[in-house]
Nucleic acid binder design. Structure first.
Lengths: 118, 118
DNA sequence: TAGATATTTAACCAGATGGTTAAATATAGT
DNA sequence: ACTATATTTAACCATCTGGTTAAATATCTA
């Protein structure tokens, strides 16, 4: 068993739950970018993107450095490591999904038989 | 590159962002459970747990079968597979984090030198 | 049929989220 | 000093979220 910080997982998964933020991370994965560059491909205002970046920052998924008026963002994937570990705990369950389906169908049939029909 | 359904990832990550729901999944991983059993260890009302279960269900993370008045829940981890794949795309970034830190420090020093101090 | 049990639905509430526009702040360039 | 650029902050709004309590629904048991 791995030890997880609940708050960290909350923030990490919540940050990943938004498609704009996942795209921002993907862009960051291709190098540091300033806010304006990161915002350009998104059909939304700059303040909206700024907010998304702050969410990612609070989740520890990016670091910010200021060079004059320009804020340079850098991906920090470390929180994803914990998230990945958490998800991996369930790997055996999706890998065994066919066996599980068989059990499911068997049980269903029993239940149907018990009720007489449908 | 893997193909992801954005909606599925939205729902999966959002479902995982709540600690109550993560606990419910952990309990489900130990076998099927009815709503009352799942609710017992949680310090909240039954309708609250019922809502959480519906969120998990809509995210495809559990299947529900009714035996009379009892609803039996079963973990379905398949959506986690996609989530895991998405996260894994970033593995190289957290594994290379030390190299990245070195780059970071070097750049910082350059910037500091340029500005003269602090 | 009456009463207990399992679960959901409804109505409500406070606070978070994701967006907007307008204004403020900070820096850069002329 | 003025103007342009990069970014945030503020104020606002609609919708979602996570909880509550009370009532409805469905089923089981006596």
């Amino acid at each position: 068993m791995v030890k997880y910080s609940s708050r960290t997982l909350n923030r990490t998964f919540a940050a990943l739950a938004d498609p704009t933020r996942r795209l921002l991370l993907a862009h960051l994965a291709r190098g540091e970018r300033c806010v304006t560059d990161l915002a350009r491909p998104h059909a939304m205002s700059l303040p909206a993107v700024s907010k998304h970046l702050r969410v990612l920052e609070k989740a520890g998924l990016l670091r910010r450095r200021r060079y004059g008026r320009v804020h340079e963002m850098q991906l920090d994937a470390k929180p994803l490591k914990q998230a990945a570990k958490w998800v991996e705990e369930y790997r055996k369950f999706w890998e065994g999904s066919l066996d599980r389906l068989a059990v499911y169908l068997e049980k269903t049939n029993k239940a149907v038989a018990k009720k007489g029909n449908k």
